[in-house]
Amino acid sequence: MSERSEPERLAGVVGGWLEESGIDHDGPLTLTRVGVGQSNLTYTVADATGRADRRWVLRRPPLGQLLASAHDVAREARIMTALQDSEVPVPRVFGVRTVDDVPMVLMEFVDGLVLDRREVVDAVPEAIRRAVGLAIARALALVHTVDLEKTGLIDLASHKPYAERQLKRWTTQWQHSKTRESADLETLTARLAAAVPEQRELTLVHGDFHLRNVIVRPEDGSVASVLDWELCTLGDPLADLGTLLAYWPEPGEPGAGLLSFSTLPGFPRRDEMAAAYLDASGRDGSALAFWHALGLWKIAIIAEGVLRRIQDEPRNRAAAYAPTTDQIDSLIAKALRTLR
């Protein structure tokens, strides 16, 4: 199958979907792969009119062999649907369909900026970059205010201690997706297991909250939508803050491009991000070093899985970048330093 054939095939699927759903559109449809995400594949859908109100988004799992429980777009759609009436901004979900045994989600197109490419970030003034960073931290605090009973998400995941669950899950992911052995990764895993803090809360946890997984408004940097709920679960809210900090390198640190563009002028520092979240949520951040290190550990394992999927199926590679083993090793080393 050629590189173009998958979007062309999906265009026919989406056309029938829109027709049966009674959603106005004029064919033919055009699907374009968007984002630098290396997990679920995301496409913008545009009809022949080119009108802004006739755009949609299609999400589907990666191509090729997948790990069990990973890339569950139907579960992701359930979460976003449950959050429609909450304070957390999410796209409207139009439906979920299974095509050739592959689940696909059709959702609203939310206008705004996704700061996942250097040329996009370069066009954002420094004052807006700062506003974006602080708005993201405050939006994360909103995620942790979601009423689990009211939204029906109380049964989304286990209520057992979150750190232990994460260590078990991602150690298994590493074993199944690694491309090589890493003594440093094994050392880091053992040290994290020995340093688990007591869990005092159970909230919704996004699981992958960072700069590239939000849509922001270019005029003021506010958050228009929170995306990519694939790793969402129930657990300790500080885990999400640790992940956000792990994805937020500062000038002089490795990770620009792989993690985010937070090293560029204007973006707030990690301590400012943490302070904005803690002020908005009223939480204590004394265990934050553990969660920051755990976030780096998890990102390293996710990146290793991306490498494995690209090796197994080159069409899963996003156009903008692919992680390298050197970048992954630098994340592991940084996590070890953070934990110490």
Results as ranks from 00 to 15, higher is better:
268 P>N: 02
124 V>H: 13
122 D>S: 03
1 M>I: 10
285 G>S: 01
152 G>L: 09
209 F>W: 07
273 M>G: 10
295 G>D: 05
82 A>G: 02
24 D>T: 08
179 T>G: 14
104 M>F: 00
226 V>E: 07
331 L>T: 08
262 S>L: 04
27 G>A: 07
157 A>H: 01
27 G>K: 08
296 L>P: 13
270 R>D: 09
286 S>F: 02
259 L>C: 03
51 R>S: 10
250 E>T: 07
275 A>E: 11
246 A>H: 05
60 R>L: 15
134 L>T: 13
107 M>L: 10
295 G>Q: 07
140 L>S: 12
101 D>M: 04
138 R>Y: 10
42 T>W: 04
237 P>D: 07
252 G>Y: 07
96 V>D: 13
158 S>Y: 02
304 E>I: 06
21 S>R: 13
236 D>F: 00
241 L>V: 05
51 R>I: 08
296 L>K: 14
22 G>Q: 06
315 R>E: 00
79 I>S: 12
201 E>L: 01
33 R>E: 00
111 D>A: 11
93 V>M: 09
339 L>Q: 06
111 D>L: 04
185 L>Q: 05
230 E>T: 15
44 T>K: 11
39 S>C: 12
245 L>Y: 11
9 R>F: 09
162 Y>P: 08
79 I>P: 10
329 D>M: 06
250 E>V: 03
15 G>P: 03
75 R>S: 15
260 S>A: 05
131 A>S: 14
80 M>N: 11
70 A>C: 05
6 E>D: 07
169 R>K: 14
247 Y>S: 03
223 V>R: 15
84 Q>H: 12
70 A>I: 06
183 A>S: 15
306 V>L: 08
89 P>H: 13
260 S>W: 00
99 V>Y: 08
42 T>H: 02
161 P>S: 14
227 L>W: 03
110 V>T: 08
110 V>D: 02
312 D>C: 00
158 S>L: 03
11 A>E: 04
155 D>A: 13
57 V>R: 12
105 V>H: 09
153 L>S: 11
138 R>W: 12
51 R>Y: 09
89 P>L: 14
37 G>N: 08
187 T>N: 03
186 E>D: 03
118 R>K: 04
322 A>S: 13
29 L>P: 03
291 W>M: 01
204 L>M: 15
337 R>P: 11
316 N>E: 14
263 T>E: 06
70 A>Q: 04
285 G>R: 05
337 R>G: 03
6 E>H: 12
226 V>A: 09
29 L>Y: 09
120 V>E: 13
252 G>T: 10
207 G>M: 03
259 L>V: 00
301 I>N: 11
196 V>N: 14
22 G>V: 01
44 T>G: 12
214 V>G: 06
18 L>E: 04
203 T>E: 14
92 R>Y: 10
133 G>P: 03
72 D>W: 00
55 R>K: 14
133 G>D: 02
261 F>I: 01
10 L>S: 06
328 I>Q: 01
112 G>I: 11
162 Y>K: 01
253 E>T: 05
288 L>V: 12
78 R>H: 11
303 A>F: 14
315 R>N: 03
325 T>S: 11
30 T>H: 07
5 S>D: 01
291 W>R: 10
316 N>Y: 13
248 W>I: 00
40 N>H: 06
228 D>H: 08
333 A>I: 12
180 R>Q: 15
227 L>F: 06
294 L>S: 05
267 F>R: 01
4 R>F: 00
40 N>K: 06
1 M>A: 14
235 G>F: 02
220 D>A: 11
10 L>E: 07
